[in-house]
């Protein structure tokens, strides 16, 4: 039994890697058909991501039709929460992420995550 335990111990020592677990951010996909897959109201919240330079953190977040220019994803979360308080907006208001081609995927996911943190129930991607 001790031999088996030794073997088990060696197996787990070799195979274990202490990494953060993977999870899933769920969303809906815009369909490339004549009719839009999800009917959008007239005023979705549009978040734009623009890469300013080659550096990882050289990017800017913009919110169409709103004055706030969040400097990071925590501020974006707060800004979207404040928008949800305005008349005609709530958590069901779609949030559309429009990112430029050269924006890092990390930032796009960060934006998506920020929208989910703000409580957005409908997050979609738009074409720049």
């Amino acid at each position: 039994m001790i031999d088996v335990t030794f073997l088990l111990l060696i197996f787990f020592l070799v195979t274990t890697s202490f990494e953060r677990a993977e999870g899933i951010l769920a969303g809906k996909m815009p369909q490339e058909s004549q009719a839009p897959g999800v009917p959008l109201p007239l005023s979705p919240i549009v978040v734009r991501l623009e890469q300013l330079g080659v550096g990882h953190d050289e990017f800017v977040i913009g919110l169409d039709r709103f004055d706030s220019v969040p400097s990071g994803f925590a501020e974006l979360t707060e800004a979207v929460r404040q928008i949800h308080q305005l008349d005609g907006f709530d958590r069901k208001t779609p949030l559309v992420i429009i990112a430029e081609d050269d924006v890092r995927w990390d930032h796009v996911v960060g934006c998506w995550n920020a929208a989910l943190r703000a409580g957005c129930e409908r997050v979609a991607f738009g074409e720049p």
């Binding site: 953060r20 677990a21 993977e22 999870g23 899933i24 951010l25 769920a26 969303g27 809906k28 996909m29 815009p30 369909q31 490339e32 897959g37 996911v109 998506w112 995550n113 991607f125």
Partner: peptide, 18 residues
């Protein structure tokens, strides 16, 4: 994402660290 949309797959999930 375009390929996924062309194949009429509606639900898109993105993997990130928890």
């Amino acid at each position: 994402m375009r390929v996924i949309a062309q194949n009429k797959i509606e639900m898109l999930n993105v993997v990130a660290h928890v």
